[in-house]
Simulated assay, not measured.
Amino acid sequence: MRFLVFDIDGTLVDSQNLLVAAQEATFAAHGLPAPSREQVLSAVGLSLAETFRALAGPDGPHAALEATYRVAFPRLLAEPALASPLFAGADALVRDLAGRQDHLLGIATGKSQRGVRRLFDAHGWHRLFASVQTADDAPSKPHPAMLEQAMGEVGALPGETVMIGDSTYDMQMARAAGCRAVGVGWGYCRVDALREAGAQVIVESIEELAAVLAHSDSARALGAAV
């Protein structure tokens, strides 16, 4: 068995416009200058609490910003211009992998459980993932707790577990948990930063990711890199 754990934002879902707009609205509501797009995207993957510590600095009004964001985000979800589509091929990949008897799928994300349920409702994914770990359930990435809890739920060992994500936090979390780490190059983080954070393999397309996960030679190479 292989346990494949996916990040969401920047890995399966292209949510960057929504995330940036939500931060702009949040900071504007408090009369604060909004962080740049680059700054917002660099914090994707963290829990909300850690996101605002990163974006507003150590002395910022973190709790107030978080409360405002929790109101702004669902309001902006309804705007067509801020739609968050799946990356092309993501749905087919997830369904193919979930249908294989020798694979289990999991989620490890900075989203809330409510956000994950919304995604699963939209795409009919509720039965495809054996474990869902969110910012509601564990310390923020890169702490290894999400992966450790996920492995405990399904009975997987670190050597059988692959974390697939687009952020340095995903790669660091995987390494801290003793798992394999696959970085995706289409997300919100530079490829060189993913490599420095511990990615053993970096893929540039959904098709390349599918090939890495499906071919035994690639799987052995990935395992040998741990």
Rank of each mutant, 00 (worst) to 15 (best):
A138W: 10
L97P: 00
E38P: 02
Y169N: 13
D96V: 01
A150S: 14
G124R: 11
M146Q: 15
M146C: 07
Q200W: 04
W125F: 15
V5T: 08
S167V: 08
F3Q: 03
L222D: 09
D91L: 07
S84R: 01
A29L: 09
A199N: 05
A224Y: 07
A28M: 03
G155A: 12
M1Y: 09
A25D: 12
I8V: 15
Q16T: 06
L105R: 12
Q16W: 14
V20K: 05
V184T: 06
A54P: 00
Q149Y: 11
Q172V: 09
I8M: 10
A81I: 01
L4R: 04
R195T: 12
H123F: 14
S47A: 14
M151Y: 02
P74F: 05
P33A: 13
S112Y: 08
A225R: 14
A214R: 15
V162Y: 07
R190W: 07
V201G: 07
A135Q: 03
V5P: 03
A193D: 15
S36H: 04
G223R: 13
L48W: 02
P142T: 03
A56I: 06
R195Q: 14
F73K: 13
V71E: 15
S84K: 01
R190C: 04
L213V: 05
A193G: 00
H103A: 06
N17E: 15
M151L: 02
